[in-house]
Simulated scan of single mutants.
Amino acid sequence: MAATRRALSMSVLALALLMPLVSGTAQASPAANGPRPAAGSVTSPRVLAVPGTVNARDIGGYRTYDGRTSRWGVLYRSETLSKLPPEGVSALAGLGLGSVIDLRTGPEVQADGADRLPAGVTSVALPVDDTSLFAFIGMVVRSKDPVYQRQQLGAGKAEARMGALYRAFVTNPANRAALGAAIRAVANADEPAMFHCSAGKDRTGVLADTILRAVGVPAATSEGDYLLSNQLRAASDAALKSQLKAAGLMQDPALLDPLLQVRSSYLAAFRAQAVADYGTFGDFLAQGLGLDTLTLFKLRLRIVG
């Protein structure tokens, strides 16, 4: 059992409260400065060849409403960078990053470790709350009780928790402040930037969606970027569930699927809450996230070619 636990590394909802979980091995992809796909497409060149990651990618190449395109090599999204091997750090250095924005909470960083960054890259901590999901999942999995696990995660309860998490990205003032600060940091950056949470799918996905839509990328296109996490994380999530079952921690690890995956309904919950609270997406940017016209103008200049 102990050996099995040591073989696992950090995954989606900071299950490191239990033990380290499945470590991601980066999928093969072209170098970050290699050929890029056509605007609006989602193909392997979008994925960064950074060993130690599976969900690190460029948000360039997306067509905006006015026919322009988000720039390649300016803004990247990823999962945690705390498990990068030396070759991963070297690959990250090749991106020419000036800063990395870490959306993880203090307990997540404590459990999983600080980012491993190239020399000269500034780490910016802007934690976004996970509504105690970190602790909850740890408690449920540690119980090893299949009846209790189904009671807590089955019958739509896991999906409901994810909906609550996404709505809290809007309703929690501290979350709005962190997301607004992250967008200001991107808008004012002179060098390429990257942002991430633990799995690079929920908080990272919401921030990417907000930035892309703010610079004029259609909502449907941005949603496609959000949903790409499912494809990129599929193999590591399957390995995680297999190891949890083999370790005797869960008889039915598929109960975790709503927590491991991104779903259109989750993103819709975030978007709907923003409109419910502020009236329009533009008002959410201005009033909810505190982004003034100049910042949004600079963001578009920075992101859109």
Rank of each mutant, 00 (worst) to 15 (best):
293 T>K: 11
48 L>Y: 04
152 Q>I: 03
36 R>F: 02
18 L>K: 03
87 E>V: 08
186 V>Y: 01
13 L>Q: 11
258 P>W: 00
123 S>T: 04
44 S>R: 15
232 L>Q: 15
214 A>E: 07
280 T>D: 01
14 A>D: 11
61 G>E: 08
106 G>F: 05
169 F>S: 01
138 G>T: 07
234 A>I: 04
224 G>N: 15
143 S>D: 08
76 Y>S: 02
166 Y>S: 01
169 F>I: 10
144 K>Q: 14
77 R>M: 11
124 V>H: 02
163 G>N: 07
40 G>W: 13
195 F>K: 12
180 G>A: 10
214 A>V: 10
13 L>M: 13
251 Q>V: 04
267 L>A: 00
289 L>S: 05
189 A>K: 07
31 A>F: 08
258 P>T: 02
293 T>R: 14
290 G>M: 09
40 G>S: 07
164 A>E: 09
2 A>C: 05
74 V>D: 01
64 T>P: 05
9 S>E: 07
108 E>A: 06
170 V>A: 08
30 P>T: 09
178 A>C: 08
286 A>D: 11
268 A>D: 13
111 A>C: 02
64 T>W: 01
78 S>Y: 12
5 R>G: 03
134 F>R: 14
240 L>W: 09
226 Y>E: 01
165 L>H: 00
217 V>W: 14
191 E>N: 09
247 A>W: 06
133 L>I: 14
113 G>H: 02
276 A>D: 13
122 T>A: 13
189 A>S: 15
50 V>I: 15
173 P>I: 08
265 S>Y: 00
267 L>F: 12
27 Q>N: 06
258 P>Y: 00
78 S>W: 09
299 L>C: 04
64 T>F: 03
134 F>I: 14
284 F>V: 12
186 V>E: 00
299 L>R: 03
153 L>S: 09
152 Q>P: 10
246 A>E: 14
233 R>H: 03
86 P>R: 11
162 M>V: 03
196 H>D: 10
118 P>T: 03
214 A>F: 12
228 L>P: 01
119 A>V: 03
85 P>D: 07
30 P>Y: 09
191 E>D: 12
43 T>A: 14
203 R>F: 12
139 M>S: 14
177 A>H: 11
115 D>M: 01
114 A>W: 01
163 G>T: 09
230 N>M: 10
142 R>M: 06
266 Y>C: 00
39 A>F: 07
227 L>M: 15
272 A>D: 15
127 P>E: 03
26 A>D: 08
16 A>W: 13
182 A>C: 06
288 G>S: 07
229 S>A: 12
51 P>C: 05
170 V>P: 13
26 A>Q: 12
282 G>E: 13
38 A>H: 11
123 S>Y: 05
217 V>E: 06
153 L>R: 06
5 R>W: 05
18 L>P: 00
121 V>I: 00
172 N>I: 10
111 A>K: 02
3 A>F: 15
170 V>E: 09
199 A>F: 14
67 G>W: 07
14 A>Q: 10
172 N>S: 04
263 R>G: 11
111 A>T: 02
85 P>W: 02
121 V>G: 00
71 R>D: 08
